[in-house]
Design a binder for these strands. Sequence first.
RNA 1: GGAGCGGUAGUUCAGUCGGUUAGAACGCCAGCCUGUCACGUUGGAGGUCGCGGGUUCGAGCCCCGUCCGCUCCGCCA
Length: 612
Amino acid sequence: MIPNAYRSLHCNAIRAEHIGQNVTLAGWVNSARDHGGVIFVDLRDREGLTQVVFRPEENAEVAAQSHDLREEDVIQVTGRVEKRLTGTENVKLDTGAVEVVVSSFNLLNKADVLPFQLDRELSNEDMRMKYRYLDLRRERMNKNIRQRHKITNAARNYLDAQGFIEVETPILSNPTPEGARDFLVPARLSPGKFFALPQAPQQYKQLLMVAGLERYFQIARCFRDEDLRADRQPEFTQIDIEASFIQQNDIISLVEGLLASMFKAGQGIDIPLPFPRMTYQEAMDRFGSDKPDTRFGNEIVDMADVFAKSEFKIFRTTLENGGVVRAINAKGFAGITTGQMIRLNEIAIQAGMKVKQLAFIKVERNEAGVLEYKSPLWKFFGEEEKAALITKLGVEENDIVFFYAGTWEEACNILGRVRLEIADMQEITKGSTALNFLWVVDFPLLAYSPEDQSWVAVHHPFTRPKAEDVPFLDAGEYGKVRAEAYDVVLNGYELGGGSIRIHESDLQSKMFSVLGVTPEEQQIKFRHILEAFKFGAPPHGGLALGLDRIAMLVAGEESIREVIAFPKNNKACDLMTDSPTTVDFKQLRELYVQSTWKEKKKEEVATPSTQA
RNA sequence: GGAGCGGUAGUUCAGUCGGUUAGAACGCCAGCCUGUCACGUUGGAGGUCGCGGGUUCGAGCCCCGUCCGCUCCGCCA
């Protein structure tokens, strides 16, 4: 730290070597302990605490003034560093062996009593957000914000060292034809027209590849006007990366090194490289998710071979009709409560289960010491099936097995969700420090949307189909086409994703056509990119990482709000500034914009009379 | 758009079967206290039980509606 007029040292910098020296400190009164004569003040700045002592015999006037000090007053003190009296050292403080005996002090700013105590946990989220600047004074928030700086810095340094160039792309850009809802900005100088805030710098970064930059990155703010979650904010930050003359493996090892440098900077740990890889198909089959949490087992098991010729008609006919029969063995969860069972079934129904209850087998030892298979299905299974099932699922005492019979998609969705809920109920990952990184590769290129009655891009329309699957694309068998796309996953969170892109104009145009964008629309919305690809676009690809989520996981937090200085609440509002807000009619008129929103009128319904 | 949990003192919470004056801890205010560090100690103030309505002799507690916060589903190329 460079000394200035306010202070010669930070509060946490004072050590035994300073004994005898005069120092000047500035900061906040963390606590004041008034003993009538001597007064102790723990002085806090962003680096830490130092105990300063006001003694009447040192300076009677200053000591008298110190009686009025209250928590969070901002003060400046000058005094002599002394070794603490023997027996009064405080091992909890880095500066606990010394103290500053104050000879002069300035009250820089008096503080009102705070609306909440900084040293106690606070559960009132409105209060935290309304007084976010006070919430950020708390040690936990201070740590999170600074840790975020460290990992961001590490990312910049790493990418710079790898030859990547940081480029800023426009915040005012065009609406995105598909994908998330855009935030719109009226364009005053083009009456009736609108900008959109970028959901991602996707097209710009590809055009930078056409521009010959070869290696680009940006710590980019992105905007999506969708509903919020604990890990989703309407504005968030991506580490956006794009490179030319590069293949999937190159990007994967680049990003592994990047993440390793960030976790090293944030947590001081070395994460093992390389990360395991799994195809999308395998992830869905085993975990029912494209972002599997691999910290625990209870995997989904295919039971087709066991039940192919079963007497149990529901399972057999499901299989005969091209469906699947799959199961999860929840190890040691036979003690599931009625409430938990109800909850699991609710979740399964939400996830698309067509029946009212998940079929199950609960394995418990009865009073006579015999293993019992409690299940509404057990009586329908033949002896061979039972034996095969027990072996295949590794069923033991105190296990409970859940079954689902239906389509592959349903089974993945339902059992994937059930698997996570069971882990939550069993608190399997509670307190775990495991970091299970994973690459999910070979995503499908396209998915059919029954809602839109058309094929939509699973990643985005610029994603390259795998060369060996292009014949399926040509044949119109869109469901079979895999993409050169990859996601990096940590403990069930999607940290980021990317792809090798299309760099040929005709292939890009064909891709748009498959997605239902007519040639006319292509010219209107994508002329710039289709043209650019004709002027010598290099093969390229990239990836974007969610910086907020990474910061959250590094900090061990469960919400990205804890690593964002001024986040929005559930309704995308900022309670501190009361944003968003209404604007004057005049301001709207200048933008040629008119609001159609009307406040709901309170229904003037007569209160039902209770007296006849 | 849907589901769940929550809202009681400044804060964190308790509040039994619907029944006297709604409690505790921390914080706050005042006094005392020269070695504390979650200082101690004596005293004090502080409540629209989110809001509106209903049931009841009586509601923090039961019912209906509504607002706010959080979590999840839908949504998030």
